Simulated scan of single mutants.
Amino acid sequence: MFARHDLVWLTHRGWDRVRAGAPQDALVHLDTWREAGWPAVVRRAEMDLAASEVAIGFAMPPRAVDGNKLRVACRVELSDVKRRTRALPLVGALDAVPVEWREGLARLEQEAAGAGLGLAVYGSVALEALTGQHYVRPESDIDLLLRPLSRAQLMTGLALLAAHAQALPLDGEVVFPDGRAVAWKELRAAFDSAAGTRVLAKALERVALVKPEELIATLEDVKWLN
């Protein structure tokens, strides 16, 4: 049901649970978040997370004094979530990035759409687009999610990201149909490495080193289902 980087909006009871477990210095920030109606972000689950719970988090804007972000990690009941969406589509975040990135990102989004690929964004760019607060800094990356449904889409998407990364600070993950995600740069490098190279795959419940072929097989499963 849930995936890392999903956006969730909480019920009143959900917010009460968040506040009850949050550190005191975070409460004023969380109250601002709640009043503004901004979403929380789904994060990787802890080992003891119950089947009836989902792990979520909040990242406040970087502090001017040191650039650090106050982060609040918590868990709520599934019934505390009143709405959920996948990560923000890239097209919805173009106005939130610095002017010098917009033309290149818009071109990437158009080329991806032309190839039947949808790109989503998470991290600082997504948070700035969602909240209007200042998250993106000169050293920020643009964290993208690529969700291919075939090997051809995967290879096209990786080629597009690599080409545009020459002019943009692109980072992010490829998300496979079973929910496991791999840093796109790591996956692309693995294709050029010796046979048997493994990549770090992150799922909602666990992290493991796997062979790229295992992940690509999930794309073949989708093809046969269609």
Rank of each mutant, 00 (worst) to 15 (best):
G157P: 04
R147N: 09
G172L: 04
V174E: 03
P148N: 10
L200V: 09
V199R: 05
R86L: 09
V174Y: 04
V174W: 04
L117V: 05
E100P: 11
Y122I: 13
R107I: 03
L88V: 01
P89T: 07
R206H: 07
R151S: 11
E128L: 02
T156D: 13
D143S: 08
R147G: 11
P148F: 02
G92Q: 14
P177T: 03
R83I: 08
S79M: 14
A96K: 07
D80R: 06
S193K: 10
E111R: 05
A120W: 10
L145Y: 03
D143Y: 09
A181F: 10
T85P: 02
I142M: 01
V136C: 09
L187I: 03
T85R: 05
L145D: 08
L105S: 00
A159T: 15
A93G: 05
L145F: 00
P148G: 07
T156W: 09
R84F: 04
E205V: 12
E100H: 15
P148R: 07
A152F: 12
T85A: 08
A120Q: 13
A165Y: 05
L117G: 02
R180M: 12
W101A: 00
D80M: 08
L105G: 02
F191Y: 14
A181E: 12
P98T: 00
D95F: 15
V97N: 00
L154T: 01
P98F: 05
S124T: 12
V91Q: 07
R83D: 13
A112L: 06
A203G: 14
E111Y: 02
A129G: 01
V174K: 02
Y135Q: 12
E111V: 05
E186Q: 14
G123H: 03
A203Q: 06
